[in-house]
Design a protein around this nucleic acid. Sequence first.
DNA 1: AATATATGCAACCGCCTGACC
DNA 2: GGGTCAGGCGGTTGCATATAT
Length: 268
Amino acid sequence: MGRQPCCDKLGVKKGPWTAEEDQKLINFILTHGQCCWRAVPKLAGLRRCGKSCRLRWTNYLRPDLKRGLLTDDEEQLVIDLHANLGNRWSKIASRLPGRTDNEIKNHWNTHIKKKLIKMGIDPVTHEPLHKEEETSSKEQINNNQSNFGGDQQQQLSLKDCDHVSSSSADNNSSSSTDESPSLDPNCSEDDLLMSYILSDAFLDNSSWNFMATTKDDDQEFGLCNWSDESSSSWLLDYQDLKDEDLGTAYLNDMSMSIAPPEMNGNKH
DNA sequence: AATATATGCAACCGCCTGACC
DNA sequence: GGGTCAGGCGGTTGCATATAT
């Protein structure tokens, strides 16, 4: 049967987005909201695939996105979640407000993977790369997991990783399990945290689920770190737009919720 | 200073899933 | 029940930048 391409390949632009294209897309989304991505390019006056528009919006233009490297805590959370969820980046991303699956995936492949390997940890299984270590670690893990049904894998700590010297991978044989982050007596606390993070209660918590504006969306507009210049600069540009002709409740709500106090009455 | 290599990230591709008809 | 479509996901690619030689 075969599927039709998601968009007409002819005349569809590819490659990096220009500022002008970004503006058009932002204008459109702010005016009409997110709907029917296939129609967006045509309606917004873009020569792009709808898919491309969606990606650009979700991965780069969304106002709630954080910018910059993941924090240590975020990295730790990604590792913990990855141990439980595997490469389900969107699920992982849904637990990290302001981060996209693409961003997390990239960060994993470029940073975290290497750190784990350096630590002698298999980034796929989250277990020691060497058999003998694995055996002894498992015993310890089993001990630590006894209170949690054995479902949680070992909790790796990048903070601990940072403490591990860069040569740790080279002398794996000597890197006894005593150094393994998973053996941290505080591990059970981590497990408790993980249990919560993996639960629906986590997402139901309003302080995390700040973006939900529709019942189906895990993430929509919401709070973000507007003290971060880079993340809010574009919105500042669009304050004019809002003032001009986008006086929708949608945008007003958004700016109410995302704008720092000083921004409301003192734009630019 | 010039070149080669490594790294990081944005974007694309193809597949899967669920909704709709 | 089967076909079509749109949205979403994970893997991969390609380019710009940083670093090493």
